[in-house]
């Protein structure tokens, strides 16, 4: 009979060593891993719990930005006032994941490394230009969030590597973000399309920097530079929003599946990008 080992190392080196073995899976909140284990989709030999490693749970401000530990649960992120003021879009994306009970466990890095193209926090993190601190047998490296997922369920992490923390850059004045997703219901669902928009305005209310990221419209969440560029120099007039809509749709190459057709997803990507841009713009203006 198969045996399942559970390890909860205190040190990064021990976790790296344990995760380098085949059949090892990293456990943060476990809200995806345990479901996959129960359904028989994965049959791990070893589960390596990362939550006892110092720094994997918690949020700290550092060099003008924020550092979020890999296993920090959604509930802690949602309740963090300074983070919510600076990155309301990222926080709302995290808060949309699962139920209240799931929020007590589900982690930011787990949502990323589960590598679902529909993960809610990922477009918001990409739009925020968030960077992952990855540790592994070859040491420590920093990679942008969009470089982690490579395909549904697959990441660029090498054996033994895991995400230790996620860093958000310093926040200029008059900048804010927003995330919207479409689900057939009102909660407890998976995004058919997700859109994160992160904007910085000048004193006159003109967009000087814009990042747009989309979820569930391609094998991985996408950064869409053309969509961001469509907004720069505008005050979100109709023409720039139409250009955003077009650019967002052009970036989509979704599949048709039980959650939505490719055609529908593509249309909705444009709709949500416009709506999220509008919300981010209002918020950024309020942070003058």
């Amino acid at each position: 009979m198969a045996q399942l080992d559970y390890l909860a190392p205190l040190k990064v080196e021990d976790a790296v060593k344990a995760l380098a073995a085949t059949g090892s899976y990293a456990l943060a909140g476990g809200t995806d891993l345990l479901v996959q284990l129960r359904s028989g989709r994965i049959r791990p030999d070893t589960i390596v719990d990362l939550k006892r490693i110092a720094g994997t749970i918690g949020i700290r401000e550092e060099a003008g930005g924020f550092v979020i530990g890999a296993a920090t649960p959604g509930a802690m992120i949602g309740e963090h006032e300074a983070l919510s003021r600076a990155w309301p879009g990222l926080v709302e994306a995290v808060s949309l994941i699962g139920s209240t009970q799931v929020q007590g466990r589900a982690s930011l890095a787990g949502n990323l490394c589960n590598a679902s193209p529909a993960a809610d926090s990922v477009p918001a993190m990409i739009a925020a230009r968030a960077v992952c601190v990855v540790v592994g047998p070859a040491g420590r490296r920093e990679v942008p969030v969009e470089a982690i997922g490579t395909a549904p369920g697959r990441t660029s992490l090498a054996p033994g590597e895991f995400v230790l923390e996620i860093r958000l850059p310093p926040r200029p004045a008059r900048s804010s973000d927003a995330y919207l997703r479409l689900i057939p219901r009102t909660e407890m669902d998976i995004a058919v399309v997700g859109a994160g928009v992160n904007l910085t305005l000048d004193a006159a209310g003109v967009v000087i920097e814009a990042q747009v990221a989309l979820g569930a419209v391609a094998p991985t969440a996408l950064l869409v530079p053309d969509a961001g560029a469509a907004l720069v120099g505008s005050k979100l007039d109709e023409a720039s929003l139409a250009a955003l809509d077009t650019a967002a749709r052009a970036a989509c190459h979704p599949i048709s599946d039980k959650r939505g057709t490719a055609e529908y997803r593509t249309k909705i990507a444009g709709v949500l990008a416009r709506r999220a841009a509008f919300i981010a713009y209002e918020r950024a203006g309020a942070r003058a």
């Binding site: 219901r185 998976i190 039980k258």
Partner: peptide
């Protein structure tokens, strides 16, 4: 929203409350 969805081999594709969408309270 509720419906059984079958793939081309006749296997149910949404055998769970995530993709078989009963209304939630909200």
């Amino acid at each position: 929203n509720e419906e059984y969805i079958f793939d081309s081999d006749g296997r149910m594709e949404n055998a769970g409350f995530l993709d078989y969408r009963v209304p939630v309270a909200s």
